[in-house]
């Protein structure tokens, strides 16, 4: 009972996911199978880490539109290193992550240092990184092959890929950061009322820069998972992913206005988005129908969350 009280919203959104799974189970003969679950676990790691990073950015009251492009650039760099320069994964993976981290840091420095809204800075970064990704690869898809696939191979003894466990690790790590550390408290506080935080004698700037850095780093990590799953580095990778990530975060109940949110719930949001996509494909829905249904589910999920908050008298 206490769990229900403390984590009522988590349970609620988890219920939405289970409902969705059951719905597709009814609509499709083969949806409710271990195979589907494995497939799902294989396709979500990149979106999961990106949405996790995005959660922090939204909580602090910003937005990062560049994550998809940063993932593309990191992928491109990984492809260049591994295919053209024959650099082994253990060296090229950290470099790809650092590329994401640098992009995130630039986002943070400009947003905080020059007090430009993060929407604009990251919109610019979206273009820069995508362009750079095309330049780096000369617009060619790099087929990396087996050397990058270990990340997407199954963890021994399970039917889930290693990347899935790593991404869940990132989710748990960031949730702990948010709940248990001073930095996390500052992030939430800044998102609630940055002005008050400043007057309480806390300099909000380092925390804000750090959040963008973390988000960029997440995009870099996401690029590894993305490349591992596809076995190739595609400069187009991650286009439109920022919107999928924001959708997942918002479905998870994080406020676009900042100050409230949970990485764990974002993860469930990712599950909902991914399940919807997989389920609709499995029942063979047409492309227009897929889009309509996906949009409707986003609105419905957010409405349910808002409605529930109103019911318990929270200000939304």
């Amino acid at each position: 009972m206490k769990i229900l009280k403390d984590h009522g919203d988590t349970v609620g959104i988890l219920a939405v996911w289970i409902l969705l799974v059951l719905l597709f189970g009814v609509l499709s003969d083969h949806f409710l199978s271990a195979n589907t679950l494995t497939t799902l676990a294989g396709r979500i790691p990149a979106l999961t880490v990106i949405a996790a990073g995005m959660t922090l950015v939204l909580i602090v009251g910003g937005i990062d539109l560049s994550v998809g492009s940063v993932l593309g650039l990191s992928s491109a760099v990984l492809g260049l290193l591994m295919v053209d320069w024959k650099v082994p994964l253990v060296i090229s993976a950290p470099i790809a992550i650092v590329v994401g981290m640098l992009a995130g840091t630039v986002n943070g420095l400009f947003t905080v240092g020059l007090r430009i809204p993060s929407f604009l800075v990251t919109l610019g970064m979206l273009e820069i990184c995508r362009g750079a990704a095309y330049l780096v690869t000369r617009s060619q898809t790099k087929y990396i092959g087996a050397s990058v696939e270990p990340l997407a191979s199954m963890l021994p003894g399970t039917t889930f890929p290693i990347s899935f466990f790593l991404s869940v690790g990132v989710v748990v790590g960031l949730q702990v950061l948010l709940e248990k550390t001073i930095l996390g408290r500052h992030i939430v506080a800044i998102g609630t009322n940055e002005h008050a935080v400043r007057l309480a004698g806390i300099d909000p700037r380092p925390a804000k820069i750090l959040v963008f850095l973390v988000c960029g780093t997440c995009a870099g990590v996401g690029s590894l998972f993305h490349c591992a799953r596809l076995g190739s580095a595609d400069p187009n990778a991650g286009s439109g992913m920022e919107l999928a990530a924001i959708a997942a975060v918002v479905i998870g109940g994080t406020s676009l206005l900042g100050g409230r949110g949970s990485v764990i719930k974002t993860f469930i949001g990712v599950l909902i988005v991914a399940t919807l996509e997989a389920g609709l494909a499995q029942i063979g829905a047409s492309e227009p129908l897929k889009r309509v249904v996906t949009g409707a589910v986003i609105i419905a999920a957010v409405s349910v969350d808002v409605f529930r908050r109103r019911c318990i008298g929270e200000n939304v």
Binding site: D29, H30, I283
Partner: peptide
């Protein structure tokens, strides 16, 4: 990739 994964699950 996502579409194919779904097709493979649905049609053994």
């Amino acid at each position: 990739n996502s579409i194919a994964a779904a097709m493979l699950s649905e049609y053994p």
